[in-house]
C-alpha cells in the first residue's frame, strides 16, 4: 500500500514575493536601527531576537531540496529545526530567499532572486544552516 507522507509539519509560504526582499528595502531591527535588506548580517537577527520577548532564533538545517508537485516555479525545502531536529517542510517560490548563518541571503535559484529582487544571493544547498524563528515559550 502507498505509504502516507512522513509526519512533518508543512508551511506554505504565500505564492508571491514579499516587497521587503527587494534590494533597498528598509528593515527595522528590534533596537530601532534601520538597515537595508541587503546589508543585514547574522548578528542583526541574533541581537534582534535577544531583545524580543516572544521570538527566538532557531537553526534550521537544509536537509533536502526538491521540485514542487504544484509548479516548476516552486521548490519544497525540508529543514531540520532546532535542537530537537524537528522536520519541517516549506513550499516556496524558487527565488524566495532564506538567510544562511554567517553567509547571507540564499535561494534555490539565486539567478532569479537577483533578477527579480536585485538582492545579492547565493545558492541554497543541503547542509546550509538557515535562520528561522520560533516562539520562546513554545515547547
Amino acid at each position: 500500500a502507498p505509504s502516507a507522507p512522513p509526519p512533518t509539519s508543512s508551511t506554505v509560504v504565500p505564492p508571491s514575493l514579499p516587497p521587503y526582499f527587494i534590494k533597498g528595502s528598509i528593515i527595522q531591527l528590534a533596537d530601532g536601527e534601520l538597515k537595508r535588506v541587503e546589508d543585514l548580517k547574522t548578528e542583526d537577527f541574533i541581537q534582534s531576537a535577544e531583545i524580543s520577548s516572544e521570538l527566538k532564533i532557531d537553526s534550521s538545517t537544509v536537509e533536502r531540496i526538491e521540485g514542487s508537485h504544484t509548479s516548476p516555479n516552486f521548490a519544497v525545502v525540508q529543514f531540520s529545526v532546532g535542537e530537537h531536529r524537528a522536520q519541517v517542510s516549506v513550499e516556496v517560490l524558487v527565488e524566495y530567499p532564506f538567510f544562511v548563518f554567517g553567509q547571507g541571503w540564499s535561494s534555490c535559484c539565486p539567478d532569479r532572486t537577483t533578477q527579480l529582487l536585485e538582492l545579492p544571493c547565493t545558492k541554497l544547498s543541503v547542509g546550509d544552516v538557515c535562520i528561522s524563528l520560533t516562539l520562546k515559550n513554545l515547547r
Binding site: 509526519p7 509539519s9 508551511t11 509560504v13 514579499p18 516587497p19 521587503y20 526582499f21 528595502s25 528598509i26 528593515i27 527595522q28 531591527l29 528590534a30 534601520l34 538597515k35 537595508r36 535588506v37 543585514l40 542583526d44 537577527f45 534582534s48 524580543s52 521570538l55 532564533i57 532557531d58 534550521s60 529543514f79 529545526v81 532546532g82 530537537h84 524537528a86 522536520q87 519541517v88 516549506v90 532564506f98 538567510f99 538557515c130 535562520i131 528561522s132 524563528l133 520560533t134 516562539l135 513554545l138 515547547r139
Partner: peptide, 25 residues
C-alpha cells in the same frame, strides 16, 4: 543615511520564516 519617512519600513522578523515545529508528545 536612511530616510524612513519616504519609504515603508518593515520589521526584521518579517524576513525570517516562522518555522514552528509541531510537537507530537
Amino acid at each position: 543615511n536612511v530616510e524612513p519617512r519616504s519609504v515603508p519600513v518593515f520589521p526584521w522578523h518579517s524576513l525570517v520564516p516562522f518555522l514552528a515545529p509541531t510537537q507530537s508528545d
